[in-house]
Design a protein around this nucleic acid. Structure first.
Length: 208
DNA sequence: ATCCCGAGGG
DNA sequence: CCCTCTGGAT
């Protein structure tokens, strides 16, 4: 029923040769912060607040000393601003206390940071350090959760486990970017453009 | 109304 | 396991 992953990968790589991490960043710290901000928010809007954010708080040391009210104003438009501001300050303090202000290149250490879950850790590991720790699975998977009778929480875990099993490790970092690009251009939530979809012939939800 | 590169708390 | 947190785009 489902086409081999290799075939899907090849089709997506051909369709989106420019796929990459769209969160603007110059170093692991900036990517970590940007990824925390990206929760339930488009990368484009994150990129609108990060220039001012990083000018004001260029590294963990300054962010750890931030006044929460000031930080909230800067990140306001990314949503969840109170939680994110609180988490970012706590995260920066933890980076100072545990890692000398540096971002650890380690899954367990990243996930233990305040406000950092497995998805954020995977983004930082893969795109800042080039380490394929796991596979980034975002909220797109929630769209098909109902078809399989799974909750979103179950879905995220199962999908990553399946991808780790089926996809060669050399593609773990690239694959999420391909899927996200596909989700943005073709497989959008409302009125998906199935007529232009390179995976249409194999898609159970295809509308044509 | 629904969705966006989620995570913590109950 | 479910809920909440938030604003802007579509």
């Amino acid at each position: 029923m489902v086409r081999p992953v290799e075939t899907i990968l090849r089709a997506l790589e051909k369709a989106y040769p420019q796929a990459h991490c769209a969160l603007a960043h110059d170093n692991p710290f900036e990517l970590l912060v940007a990824t925390v901000l990206s929760a339930q928010c488009t990368d484009k809007r994150v990129n609108q607040v990060t220039p001012l954010l990083f000018a004001r708080y260029p590294e963990a040391a300054s962010l750890a000393q931030a006044r929460q009210s000031e930080l909230e104003k800067i990140i306001y438009s990314t949503g969840f601003y109170r939680n994110k501001a609180k988490h970012l300050i706590a995260m920066a303090k933890a980076l100072m206390a545990l890692y000398g202000g540096q971002v650890p290149a380690d899954m367990k250490a990243l996930v233990a940071l305040p406000g950092v879950g497995r998805k954020t850790a995977n983004v930082v590991l893969g795109n800042a350090f080039g380490i394929a720790g796991g596979v980034v699975v975002d909220t797109h998977v929630g769209r098909i959760a109902r078809l399989l009778g799974l909750t979103k929480a179950q879905m995220v875990e199962k999908v990553e486990a399946d991808l780790i099993r089926c996809v060669p490790r050399s593609k773990w970092i690239l694959l999420p970017h391909l899927l996200i690009e596909h989700g943005r251009q073709i497989c959008v939530a409302r009125r998906p453009r199935c007529g232009q979809c390179v995976l249409a012939t194999n898609c159970p939800s295809c509308l044509i």
